[in-house]
Design a protein around this nucleic acid. Structure first.
Lengths: 148, 148
DNA sequence: CCACTTCTACCCACTTTTCCCCACCAATCA
DNA sequence: TGATTGGTGGGGAAAAGTGGGTAGAAGTGG
């Protein structure tokens, strides 16, 4: 279970160093092989390779002629890139993904249970603003009984 | 399984170099023989030859008198061209297909599981804009329970 | 039917990029 | 204070991308 947000830096070659606390888990579960892809909210998704496969297969089963399904396939499968951690626990973020998520030097890696999200500094701050702005109406349909 | 987007250049002779990471798979599955054809979304489709045959047969079984089926047949079968990778892993994109998809020098090869799509730079950027614009309403019918 | 021209395909060589590994710096804990 | 672990940067070898040149085939015109 991945949780917690870490501020990371993209180095000159477009790599990020996965925080050490997550490395063991990633090495164990998939020998360091990760899949990076695009998320419709303009951030990136990072899955351990085994967790990605069922998601990919589900998306691929959808029709290519239903417009939204076609877009989703192009986004999730079209942008997916398999990458491995190097000896220092770093992964390369390809230029097309960096461009999609508008990543600059400072980025945020956010644990989301089975996977991570990778946000640009600006995007992550904007998300926080949204949460605070929504305020009272935060609970989505189906979660009205949720309480902290 | 083909996934990932790569920016490629069409050279002066109208060829694209298939990224090395996909070449082994294509050589194995069909000895480098590919089928290129037109996609109704104004991009091109690239199938390994064995994966194309069942699709072609399915389209050809449709009635020639049902107007949409006739259009689909003319598009998919009418534009289909078999090409082989050369020793350097390049394939020729015929002028008629280049014109159909409005390909210029910079193009994008997008993996879609069993096959690829080939987009003009402008077309691919427009697709991305659509994805981001749809945003909240992204989930297509039948996939409402899909979660990342 | 032959010859000339054009187009295509294959091959080779050069340039660029990528990937892997090593070394250094900083921070933390003993 | 020293040792160990995590983060960062850089350099070099190997592979991939790109362009051009030549030979062969196909098409056309005389």
């Amino acid at each position: 279970m991945f949780q917690g947000a870490s501020q990371l830096t993209l180095d000159a070659k477009g790599r990020i160093a996965i925080p050490a606390k997550h490395r063991d888990a990633l090495s164990t579960v998939s020998d360091g092989r990760l899949v990076l892809t695009a998320h419709p909210h303009r951030c990136l998704l990072i899955y351990p390779e085994p967790a990605w496969e069922p998601k990919r297969d589900e998306v691929l089963r959808a029709s290519s002629f239903e417009p939204r399904a076609a877009l989703l396939k192009r986004l999730l499968v079209g942008f997916a890139q398999e990458e491995s951690m190097d000896a220092a626990g770093r992964v390369l973020v390809s230029p097309s993904l960096r461009q999609f998520a508008q990543l600059e030097k400072q980025v945020w890696l956010v644990g989301q249970g089975s996977h991570f999200e990778l946000w640009s500094e600006a995007g992550w701050l904007a998300e926080q603003e949204k949460m605070l702005a929504i305020g009272a109406d935060l609970l989505p349909p189906g979660m009205e009984s949720f309480s902290l």
